Computed example of a mutant assay.
Amino acid sequence: MKFPSHINLPREARAELIKLLNTCLATSIDLHWQVKQAHWNIRGKNFISRHELFDDVADHVRKHADNFAERAGALGGYALGTIRLAAKNSELEEYDLSAVDGDDHIRILVDRVSRYAAILRDGIQRCADLNDPVTEDLFTQVLSEVEQDLWFLESHLYGSAATGRDDIAPSAILEERSPAPNA
């Protein structure tokens, strides 16, 4: 750890949390720029709604990066947030540069955002294991926003070949999820 911190956690726990926060920082920086890649290069139907959605998602993820960096600093750590460090330490795959069609960009972003959400969910559990409710709460708040963004992104695929659910009526979906009646 680079800086003093009087946060009441064992040094080893703070070191592990800082590492986790820096991984999330790198991943969020990478995700921000992947979403901007889609924002700049989307073409096709629904252009403006998707263009604006991508900007909103990118803004959210940029704020997440700032929160991860600040929490790492509060724990006595050093935020590793340069572009080169983000590229090296991100948990995401490289963006598919052949994507141009709106559905292609959406599918890629759904994949990346769902991976980001999984990392956050794992982080929540690790923070609980390390008895750090503050960092756990940060991850929980971020995950809530990420899952809403994921829902918005996935909603753009409903009815397309990508979901395989274009012919299912809402009543069939409800029946699928309803518990069986008692015998």
Rank of each mutant, 00 (worst) to 15 (best):
V110D: 02
L109H: 02
A161W: 12
G164V: 14
L120Y: 01
Q148W: 14
D111V: 08
T140H: 08
R115E: 14
R121H: 11
P133H: 10
L109E: 04
V113L: 02
Y116C: 00
V134L: 06
T135L: 02
D149F: 03
S160R: 14
V146L: 05
R126K: 09
V134D: 08
R115I: 09
D149W: 02
S160W: 03
I168N: 12
G164F: 08
A162L: 11
R126N: 03
T135M: 04
A169Q: 12
I119Q: 10
S144N: 10
V146G: 02
E136P: 03
D166E: 12
V134A: 07
L138C: 00
N131I: 11
R112L: 11
F139T: 00
D129Y: 08
E145A: 09
N131E: 13
S144P: 04
Q141D: 14
L130N: 01
A128C: 08
G164D: 08
T163L: 13
R126L: 01
D137C: 03
E145Y: 04
E145C: 05
T163E: 11
P133Q: 06
S160H: 09
V134W: 07
V134I: 09
Q148F: 11
D137K: 08
L150K: 03
D122W: 03
D111I: 10
I168Y: 13
Q125D: 15
D129W: 04
E147R: 08
A162V: 08
E136Q: 06
E154W: 09
V146R: 01
L157G: 05
W151D: 02
I124P: 02
T163Q: 06
W151G: 09
A118F: 06
D111W: 06
I119N: 10
A169V: 11
V142F: 07
S160L: 12
I124N: 04
R121L: 10
T135Y: 03
L130Q: 01
E147F: 07
S160C: 11
G159E: 04
L138M: 05
E145I: 05
R165L: 15
A161T: 14
D129C: 00
A117E: 03
V142L: 07
E145D: 13
A161Q: 15
D149L: 05
V134S: 09
E136D: 02
F139A: 01
F139V: 00
L150H: 05
T140K: 09
L150F: 04
E145V: 03
L138T: 00
S160M: 09
G159T: 10
D111G: 14
G123K: 01
H156E: 13
F152T: 07
D137E: 06
A128S: 14
A118R: 06
A161G: 13
F152P: 05
H156W: 09
L120A: 01
I124S: 06
A118K: 08
R115Y: 11
Y116P: 00
L120N: 00
D149N: 09
L157T: 04
V146S: 03
A169T: 10
L157S: 05
Q148E: 14
E147V: 07
R112A: 15
A128R: 11
V110P: 00
W151M: 07
R112E: 12
V134Y: 05
L153A: 04
S160F: 06
A128Q: 11
Q141C: 12
R121C: 05
D167T: 15
L120I: 03
R115N: 12
Q141Y: 12
S114Q: 06
V110K: 01
R126H: 04
E136M: 07
S114H: 04
A161F: 12
P133F: 08
E147G: 07
Q141P: 05
D137R: 10
